[in-house]
């Protein structure tokens, strides 16, 4: 059982210990499974389905009853707060389920820092959520409006809106992970996140 000459020791130290392997696993949960395309389709119907209906299907069925693009544009942006709830649902069990099942304890018995354990989840989930929920759906929406208008929509306000939305989602991803690290139940994670969202809505 001699050490294989062709294998090299991993040299991650301090807070980075275990990061590469954990990041590979967390990314794999999104991109090596059907999760990424299932989520892409689900979020297409939630965010862009109504736009497709209003921009293309209704005008095709009844040409006299097509709403103005500006109105549909407004409807499109009113749909986006729902992504925050989507993030809460997607993230609620990320840490808690590992604590409940005991896999977190198994992971921590390896050369892994607590920071790596949480940060790998944060990086992989943020990356996937921003690509699937924001990037892809934003691009589909932009393409639909530009095709309908037969000209490219102004890019700058669009990017600004999605920039702010991305920051908002990143905050809730981080919050869900933090609450998951503190509490043992999913109820606390989703309850506190939702409470904050409602408070934010009422305060604004």
């Amino acid at each position: 059982m001699a050490e294989s000459a062709l294998l090299y020791r991993v040299h991650e130290r301090g807070w980075r210990s275990g990061m590469t392997n954990l990041l590979r696993k967390e990314n794999g949960l999104w991109w090596n499974t059907r999760r990424w395309w299932v989520q892409s389709i689900v979020w297409y119907f939630i965010l862009n389905g109504l736009v497709t209906l209003l921009l293309w299907i209704i005008p095709a069925l009844d040409p006299g009853d097509s709403p103005a693009i500006d109105e549909i544009y407004g409807v499109f942006f009113q749909m986006w707060p729902i992504t925050t709830i989507g993030v809460m649902v997607l993230m609620q069990s990320s840490v808690v389920s590992e604590k409940q099942s005991g896999t977190a304890a198994w992971i921590m018995s390896n050369p892994v820092s607590r920071i790596s354990f949480i940060l790998s989840k944060f990086i992989a989930n943020t990356f996937a959520i921003l690509i699937i929920l924001v990037g892809l759906q934003g691009l589909i929406g932009y393409a639909q409006f530009s095709l309908k208008a037969k000209a490219l929509m102004p890019m700058a306000p669009y990017l600004r809106a999605f920039g702010v939305l991305s920051l908002h989602l990143v905050f809730y991803i981080a919050l869900a992970l933090m609450l998951g690290a503190i509490f043992r139940g999913r109820g606390a994670v989703i309850g506190i996140s939702l409470g904050l969202l409602v408070f934010q809505d009422l305060a604004s």
Binding site: S4, L6, L7, Y8, R9, V10, G18, T20, N21, R24, K25, N110, P111, V112
Partner: peptide, 15 residues
């Protein structure tokens, strides 16, 4: 494979 990768990297065949 997952646990081994906390300790080693290198050619897939060796792992």
């Amino acid at each position: 494979r997952f646990r081994a990768r906390f300790f080693y990297y290198g050619p897939k065949t060796s792992l």
